[in-house]
């Protein structure tokens, strides 16, 4: 009894959190992911920060909308397939409701100056939330004290902002760097073992 209650509470929390995040985020997948990080890592303590970054990389590299992809993985992590369904429902209901209503009188919506203004100023708030999350994340990359990771972060940022290299390409490049890193570590540990034997 207690277990099913606890499970129901987790499902409800998942649904509520994803519903609210989805209702208030605009501007693409990485925006909602930074809000998810704030909610699930910082506020609820359900996930490790590294785990959230891994989930983001997987969500970005898979086909489909990033917020839905992230919801599938987070939901699965918290409560298996029922969790996935709760998180998908939470993420997709707000846009379904909002857009259904808007589609009925979209001409008025598009030309209403107060709505346009509110949506415009909210961007400043969204930007502040993302910067807040980025400051925490970047600090932790620096804290690893591995120059390779700091260089990857700076390089990826420059490549994306200045050169317009796409997110998928950047993730693939870093994947290759990671694989090379593993190969080097394996080789150096084998060498060390041989030296010990010699």
């Amino acid at each position: 009894m207690k277990r099913t209650e606890k499970r129901a509470a987790v499902l409800w929390q998942l649904f509520k959190a994803t519903f609210l995040l989805s209702a208030f985020t605009f501007g693409g997948g990485f925006v909602i992911v930074s809000l998810m990080k704030k909610k699930f890592v910082e506020e609820l303590g359900w996930l490790e920060e590294d785990e959230m970054l891994d989930v983001t990389a997987i969500a970005q590299s898979s086909p489909g909308p990033i917020p839905i992809n992230a919801s599938v993985i987070l939901g699965y992590r918290m409560a298996g397939i029922p969790g996935t369904l709760a998180a998908i429902l939470g993420t997709s209901l707000p846009p379904m409701i909002i857009l259904s209503v808007i589609s009925l009188f979209y001409a008025q919506f598009r030309s209403n100056p107060v709505i346009a203004l509110a949506l415009q100023v909210m961007r400043a708030g969204v930007a502040a939330v993302i910067f807040d999350v980025v400051i925490n994340l970047a600090k932790n990359v620096v804290k690893t004290r591995r120059p390779l990771y700091v260089a990857l972060m700076a390089g990826a940022f420059t490549a994306n902002v200045v050169l317009g290299v796409s997110a998928s390409v950047l993730i693939l490049v870093c994947l290759a760097v990671g694989l090379a890193d593993v190969a080097l570590q394996v080789r150096s540990s084998e060498k060390a073992r041989q030296e010990v034997r010699a």
Partner: peptide, 26 residues
């Protein structure tokens, strides 16, 4: 080890998304 190399890129991409929203806002 592989995932650790992906994480800095994800941080950079989130930062880049934040920057474009900020530019649109300002």
């Amino acid at each position: 080890t592989v995932l650790s190399a992906l994480r800095p890129a994800v941080v950079a991409l989130i930062a880049s998304a934040g920057l474009s929203i900020l530019m649109l806002g300002l």
